[in-house]
Amino acid sequence: MFVKFLSAAVFAGTPLLFGTTGEIMNEKAGHLNLGVEGMMAMGACAGFMAGFFYDSIIIALLAAFLAGMLGALIYALLTITFMANQNVTGLTLSIFGVGICNFVGEFMLLNSPSNTLKLPEHITAQISNLNIPGLSTVPVFGPLLFQYNIFVYLAALIALICGIYYNHTKTGLNVRAIGENPGAADAAGIKVTKLKYINLLVGGGICGLGGAYCSMIINGGVWMNNPVNGQGWIAVALVIFASWKPYRAIFGSFIFGAFSILKYYFPKTIISLPNAFYDMLPFIITALVLVITSIRKSKENQQPASCGVNYYREER
């Protein structure tokens, strides 16, 4: 039972991990992007539809990544080049992204004969859980490590690479410098605009992948409106919980995943709470995390200092 719970937590935490990693890439480059929900929604829509039509996981993932990137491009263009307010742009991207996701979803439903959209079999097999003979059947370790679908491994891998990128590469150092003090980075010869664009776009793409998980996995391959359903917002909050560190994001996501599935596993015989309470739980915990992190402030483990502030070189 407990093993099952942990493995379910990993499943539930995976979209959060994509979103969190994507948002970390934004914030490290100095951009507080509140559009995660929107970019995930765009990825959800594009990923599902590509999978539906082309029946290929590669094309679905690519489409989700590109769609997330497209959302990020709108945001990046407006905030990096046009220096628009980051908060408002991000919020608008979320409203726009969710809107377009549901709009296209309903449009496709309208044009489908049975009024349902279900992913074809080939791709369903590709995204079903791994089954490695010999490994997946090992008790405890099998389900905990070798029985996930391709998304789960991809999410963890991306977060790991992201961690190495920021901690151990020169480019990562340069990006961190931009997020902290773009003026200093610029004067040091770092190409601020170019690096910002790259990080924001890749981050958006990663969010898009998280969206594809929501639409393709969670509802068992059947299209439902509003597939992301607030996970993008939790991801933004998780960045704070993970204190802007990709490695910590992995654990954070799985912990939050656990909260979101608690209602199916918590023994009702001990305390019986209404379902709505469990549904609230991730959001209450997130709010608590926000409060706690704001109470204990340290010099390190903080949001990049210039996050939310646009940079114009000739500003006087």
Binding site: I74, L78, V88, T89, T92, L93, I95, F96, G97, V98, G99, I100, N102, F103, G105, E106, F107, L110
Partner: peptide, 15 residues
Amino acid sequence: LSTYFASVLQGIILF
């Protein structure tokens, strides 16, 4: 066509 068209268009206008 879905009423979500409204939020898509609102988003575009603000962009």
